[in-house]
Design a binder for these strands. Sequence first.
DNA 1: ACGATTATTGCGTTCTT
DNA 2: AAGAAAACAATAATCGT
Length: 298
Amino acid sequence: MSDANSARARTEETCPECSGPLANQGDEVICGGCGLVVSTDRIDRGPEWRSFDDGEDGTNPERTGAPLTRSRHDRGLSTEIGRDNRLKGRKRRRLARMRRQHDRAQIRSKAERNKVYGFTEIRRLVGALSLPKDVREQACVLFETAQDAGLFQGRSLEGFASASVYAVCRVRAIARTVGEIVEHARGDAAELRAAYDAMNRELGLQTGPIDPAQYVPRYASELDVPDRVQRRGRELVARAQDAGIIGGRNPSGVAAACLYTAAREHDVPLTQAEAAEAADVTPVTLRGTFYDLQELND
DNA sequence: ACGATTATTGCGTTCTT
DNA sequence: AAGAAAACAATAATCGT
């Protein structure tokens, strides 16, 4: 409202010719004394759009179309051949045929494009995470399987791309956390999970638990602790395994706890907070296994 | 959807310097 | 004594099934 009326603000000013009072008259500003037309403003400076949504502020600039969605290859944009029941006979049948063909072509090409999109995303992820090459192949196969099983409905492609990579890591017991993947992925953890759950449920992925020992060397180098500490850490992981401590626990947290315990045994300065930070868990989580580990050693 | 695990936050306690 | 680290507790969020 304020922008659109900026021209009217000149009412406060005076006429450049006779210094008389200015007045609005339609789109023009006119001097009350001499009748001089000071300015003309036929331009509407208001928003060029009007709001079509029911929101309160009315600032949504969308003018047309269905809401855009990520879960469709074309984000919900589409072209369709309409029905016009004024048409009869040959023309009408011809139009129906065109519509049918158009629809089919769209479905085929949609699947095609989804696949291309998914594959490139998978390729990108595998590269960014520096995973072996055959992980890519496997992830792509999985992606395709999920597509053929019709799991894409209502879920995002980005989610399936990242979930495929994650799932392959899981079935091959390659230690990568969801966080690590999401960090490089296009799309968030929720999307990955939705897709992963769907695949796990419908496709019955054979996923085993991840061995915490795999995380130990990574975190060890990240924390810059000596080799002996790292070796001891792995031993502790093995011990924890045997003791059945790591039931349902976050493998990253277990690895961090073992590393921390090892460092403490060797009098290497390493705080819980630091170890936890490297493993992307909280000190509280680390502590959980740390205590159990202590009891084991008494 | 549920039960278990984990995150977060705040705060009195213990250890170090 | 001061400051950091570890411990504890309560509740919110997230995970695995």
